[in-house]
Structure formats: C-alpha cells, structure tokens
C-alpha cells in the first residue's frame, strides 16, 4: 500500500481564536514495505499527521492518495482504508474494554466484517506475534501488567491484518527492558509480515537502530527526511528543535571531529564496540 501526501495542510478550529495550523504543506511518499521513524517533539504535528494516514482526519487543503486513489474520490471506501492502515495510539492500553483478552483483540476483525473463523485465526496469530501467552486469552485485560496490556492493544490492531502499521510512542512509560522488548517485537513483526511500519517517537534513541528512514517534523513541517546516518549528522539543527541524537552517535561524531577515522552510521553499543575494536 503506497501512500502519497500531496501538499497537505491541516488547520484545527479554522476561523476561531483557537485556530492552529498543525500541518503546513506536507508532501511525502511512503512506498511499500519501508521501516520509517517519524520524529518530532510534542506539538510538532506528528500525531496530526498519522491521523491522516488512516482517514481519521482529512486535510484542510491538499490531497492524499492511497494506492493511487484520492481520499476525496466519491467511491473511496473509508472502511477499507482502516483495514489497510492500522494505527496504534499512544498508551493504547487505555482503549481496552472487553471482558477478556481474546474478545478485545477480536473487536477490530469483527468490525471489519471478517468471518468468525478468519477473525479468530487472525486474533490468535496477532497475540502470538506480540508474545502474549495462550493462558492469558480469557483473562480480563484489566488484570494484566502494563507491558502486557500494551501488547494486547497492539495485537488488537495487528489482528486486522494491516499492510501499514503506524505506532505512536509504543515504548512510552515502560522500563528499559520493556522498551527494548516491545521495539524488538515490532521489528520482528515487520520482518515476518513484510509490512510498512511507521514508528512515531520523540526519542531518536528508540528508533535509531531499527528504521531505515527518518522523517523529522518541526512546527508542522517536514524538517528532514533521510537515512538515520544523514539525519544525525545535523546534530545542532536537531538540538534546536528540541531533539537528541543517540548518545553513541553523538560520541562518534565528537571523536571524528578530533580526527579519528570512525564511521558515523553507528547507533548502538554493539556497533560502536565493533567499530572501535577494528
């Protein structure tokens, strides 16, 4: 599923004193199968942007094309779009409502009108891929731990078998181990199912080692759109936008400045260790 944003702007509360231009002339191409990090500090417009990707918000001006079809076409089917683009909101565990884990995960597939058997197969597969044990299927989601709840909520979107998966801050509020586990899980899902994944975060650290393309948003505009290596070389610009680059990368940039011949596409301790031992 390719997504093209063509000069998209979004204005909240137009014509009132609360008017706010959240997206300002965004043009973007998201081809099939990419792993993208969408970075920006709070209020940079990234949440507004991702809500355009599955039609929850419509552009105030500009157009969006899904597989070549305009969102404003008369025969555009919103329901199909919701199936194709799965959106996991921040703190998704707050949307759980059913009496059991399995029922909650089935909510999406049932809404899409999937056949009972297909829906169940999809739900089981989704729960398995996020690492929820079968013994938890009939447990109330409210009785799970924070990390488990989040996995169930992600499974709820995965069960709809989206071709594009957008996750808003999937690791927010978890401890270091929990953060790493959830991000590894997402990377695995992407590898196994070969889908497009967009990881939204205000932390470069979290996305650095996973994604192949980073889109940096600032004040409703796209400030940078490039490979991680290229983006991180603009250390000072990023800092002016309230963003950080991964610690290790920053260290290497500094070492390079002092004349050491080291690579700059280094984001993790493992990579750094390899590079320095050479």
């Amino acid at each position: 599923m390719s997504i093209i944003l063509d000069h998209v702007s979004h204005i909240y509360n137009p014509g009132t004193t609360f008017e706010k231009r959240a997206l300002d002339d965004i043009s973007l191409v998201i081809p099939d199968g990419e792993f993208i990090g969408l970075i920006g500090h709070t209020g940079s417009g990234k949440s507004t942007l991702i809500q355009h990707l599955n039609g929850l918000l419509k552009p105030s001006s500009g157009n969006i094309f899904f597989n070549g079809q305009s969102i404003f076409d008369n025969d555009f089917k919103m329901k199909d779009l919701r199936r194709e683009v799965g959106l996991v909101f921040q703190y998704p565990e707050y949307q759980l409502f059913e009496v059991s884990v399995i029922k909650d995960v089935l909510f999406g597939p049932n809404n899409l009108g999937m056949k009972t058997l297909d829906a169940e197969v999809a739900a089981y597969a989704a729960l398995k891929s996020v690492g929820i044990d079968e013994s938890l299927l009939d447990v109330s989601p409210l009785d799970l731990s924070g990390g488990q709840k989040r996995r169930v909520a992600i499974a709820g979107v995965l069960a709809m078998k989206p071709k594009v998966l957008v996750l808003d801050e999937p690791a927010a509020g978890l401890d270091p181990l929990g953060r790493r586990e959830i991000l590894d899980t997402i990377a695995n899902i992407r590898k196994e199912q070969n889908i497009t994944v967009i990881l939204v975060s205000h932390s470069m650290e979290d996305v650095a080692q996973y994604v192949e393309r980073i889109i940096v948003m600032n004040k409703g505009k796209i400030a940078m759109d490039d490979t991680p290596q290229e983006v991180y070389s603009h250390d000072e610009e990023l800092q002016a936008m309230g963003l950080d680059i991964p610690e290790i990368t920053r260290l290497f940039l500094r070492l390079k400045k002092e004349g050491y011949r080291l690579p700059t596409d280094v984001f993790t301790v493992d990579q750094a260790y390899e590079a320095m031992m050479k």
């Binding site: 181990l177 290790i248 301790v269």
Partner: peptide, 11 residues
C-alpha cells in the same frame, strides 16, 4: 536486575 548501564559507560 533488569536494568541497563548508560550506553557510553557500557561501551
């Protein structure tokens, strides 16, 4: 104890 060492310290 399921914690991590800051990356630079670890390196």
């Amino acid at each position: 104890y399921k914690l991590e060492v800051p990356e630079i310290t670890e390196l």
